[in-house]
Design a binder for these strands. Structure first.
Length: 591
RNA sequence: GCGCCCGUAGCUCAGUUGGAUAGAGCACCUGGCUUCGAACCAGGUGGUCGGAGGUUCGAGUCCUUCCGGGCGCGCCA
């Protein structure tokens, strides 16, 4: 409809040009938008206002001329000129109600489109270090990433969902050490101080226990030998002074552990810890409705890092300073250059990132989305710089910086401290408020906006909770259909579709317009990567339904009217389902 | 100091490439269930869109600047 109006306006404009009313070199953007106010019709354009100045004519006169040049159309009931020079289009009733037929025909596919043209796009999200369970901060990235992937898929993109597993590096060594030390203490009740920089959560004990189950006491070593002579751990005295070095302490212990166990055994401890945590994360996310096509291992591209570094070197983007090799990212707008190879020859984390970028693009993704926490925004420039230096178009990388979620309970901010061990895990959140509410709340705000997550509100089974409000609309429709059966009445879709012209109430017109808007909204939300537009829309649609419900009977005596209204209800229910499915919120028939 | 994000009703937030009278939820006030589910609906109170300039037919939206808040500015991961 919109596109048709735009074509007709383009024709009208061409006519005015040949008539000499509009200079031929003027070619404004012709846009037709939906109106907010029903008194302005269904669609509007500002074309006359754009043309008025170059043509030297008053906007309203220009509008008159445009309207006169428009062809008659069956789908348009009336065209008016309003305000400073808007042209308003009123859709004919049959055009409005026709959407019901489309919704029922297309079903689950209603709203899906092909604007993505099958373009291959990767969405990488969460990618939390596998050193412990996910916490509530990861939850927002998970919900947003999953929903954005769903939106893109619905908009016709070929989407791949990926989790980047940081299974290399010092943090993983600390994890392996932590597991092994718990394993030791569990086996021998050996008395030694657990390093202050180790991972202390209960889950480490569980992993250690399962390690003992599968490996027996094969990894037992004498703790005294491991600890003897290592740098002292950090100790904070009562007066606040500190002694020792927790970083050096834990690094020394890692070396001792590797020596004591030997490479093979160390590797098995390491992998046991890694796999246990990855599995935990996988299950956790799965229960949250978040699934991946690929769990991509950082280790798997370790051997590519050197090659990528050499490529940068031969392209002239590297230089040596202080024994290290630097990437000249300032040449691409970064505010400082970045080290890629340390003076001891080891590559940096950033070097791995570059190899990963190259790997992604080599896999054929035309567009690559990184869903990052807002604290990562500093990486954006250097990542794009590296992308460009490798000879790729940096526009193919896209970074969504997700602002933090702050939990509130009883009006008080919930403190999340990893150190104190009192942080809230995603699993605990799901158990407390339920998956539906968690998914909804995480995506209901723009991702650029901090999220105040009110635990009490998310939990409440009351009118204050927006999740229930929308689900209730769905359940209500189901309830009407059940009642239909109780009264021994039948639903006849063809009869209803034939009687759609009976839907003339304002509440019905509003619902019809909302239904017709869904495909446009879905497309916009996908292109903008903004799931919150969907929750906002669903709220409006539910509101339209509730309002309709309170004002009108559906199971009326008039057969044609009853069938028509039931068709409308089914169409509304279908779109509620389509929308809620995108954000992975359930659609209960009874509540 | 530099960079990114944010600032809209008492609170939490929408506001579609710049459009018509700035919207919604919560809170507060009023009204609506003998008839398909009141987890609902209808109406009302409430705004210098952080401040000041600028761009234009038109600015919450774009530009400049200032103020306020969050985050980041490692050869860490």
């Amino acid at each position: 409809m919109k596109a048709r109006l735009e074509e007709q306006l383009a024709d009208a404009l061409a006519t005015l040009k040949t008539d000499g009313l509009v200079p031929s070199d003027v070619s404004p953007q012709i846009t037709v938008t939906r109106t907010k106010d029903p008194t302005h019709g269904d669609f509007a354009t500002n074309l006359a206002m754009q043309l008025a100045k170059p043509a030297g004519v008053k906007p309203r006169d220009m509008a008159d001329a445009l309207v006169a040049a428009l062809p008659a159309s069956e789908s348009v009931r009336e065209v008016t000129i309003a305000g400073p020079g808007f042209i308003n289009f009123f859709a004919s009733e049959s055009t409005l109600s026709d959407v019901v037929r489309r919704v029922l025909d297309e079903g689950d596919a209603f709203g899906r489109s092909e604007v993505g043209k099958g373009q291959r796009i990767q969405v990488e999200f969460v990618s939390a270090n596998p050193t412990g369970p996910l916490h509530v901060g990861h939850g927002r990235g998970a919900a947003l990433g999953a929903t954005i992937a769903n939106l893109l898929s619905a908009a016709g993109f070929d989407v791949q969902r990926e989790y980047y597993v940081n299974d290399a590096g010092r943090q993983m060594n600390i994890l392996a050490l932590s597991v092994w030390l718990r394993y030791l203490s569990a086996g021998t009740a050996a008395d030694f101080a657990f390093p202050s920089n180790g991972y202390r959560g209960d889950y480490i004990n569980d992993i250690a226990a399962s390690l003992r189950e599968t490996e027996g006491d094969a990894f037992e070593r004498d703790p005294a030998a491991v600890f003897s002579g290592v740098v002292d751990d950090e100790v904070v005295a009562a007066d606040g002074t500190t002694t020792g070095d927790k970083e050096a302490h834990v690094d020394a212990l890692i070396e001792r552990a590797q020596t004591a166990l030997g490479d093979n055994a160390w590797r098995r401890v390491f992998d046991h810890g890694l796999e246990a945590i990855i599995e935990d994360i996988r299950v956790d996310l799965g229960e949250f409705g978040v699934n991946y096509d690929e769990w991509f291992s950082e280790r798997s591209i370790a051997s590519d890092v050197e090659q990528v570094v050499e490529r940068l070197a031969s392209a002239g983007h590297l230089y040596e300073k202080d024994g290290s090799r630097w990437f000249r990212s300032t040449a691409f707008g970064d505010d400082k250059d970045r080290v890629v190879v340390r003076d001891d020859g080891r590559t940096t984390y950033f070097a791995s990132d570059i190899a990963y970028i190259d790997n992604k693009l080599a896999r054929g993704f035309e567009q690559v989305l990184y869903v990052f926490g807002a604290d990562h925004h500093g990486y954006v420039t250097r990542m794009k710089a590296a992308c460009e230096a490798l000879g790729h178009d940096p526009q193919r990388l896209e970074f969504l910086l997700i602002q933090f979620a702050i939990l509130y309970r009883s009006g008080e901010r919930v403190q999340m401290s990893t150190r104190s061990g009192s942080f809230v895990t995603l699993r605990e959140l799901r158990e407390e408020v339920g998956t539906d509410a968690a998914r909804w709340f995480y995506v209901m705000r723009r991702y650029q906006q901090h999220l105040d997550f009110d635990l009490d509100l998310a939990k409440s089974r009351s009118n204050e909770n927006p999740v229930y409000y929308v689900q209730y609309a769905h359940a209500r429709i189901c309830s009407v259909l059940r009642e239909l059966g109780h009264r021994n009445l039948a639903f006849e879709q063809d009869a209803g579709l034939a009687a759609l012209d009976q839907l003339v109430e304002p509440a019905e017109a509003e619902l019809l317009t909302l239904l017709a808007t869904w495909p446009e909204l879905l497309e916009r939300a996908a292109i903008a990567r903004e799931p919150h537009q969907v929750t906002g829309y669903l709220r409006d649609l539910a509101n339209g339904l509730h309002s309709y419900y309170n004002g009108h009977k559906f199971l009326v005596d008039d057969d044609a009217l009853r069938q028509a209204r039931l068709c409308l209800l089914l169409a509304v229910r279908q779109v509620l389902v389509n929308g809620l499915t995108l954000i992975d919120v359930s659609t209960p028939e009874v509540m």
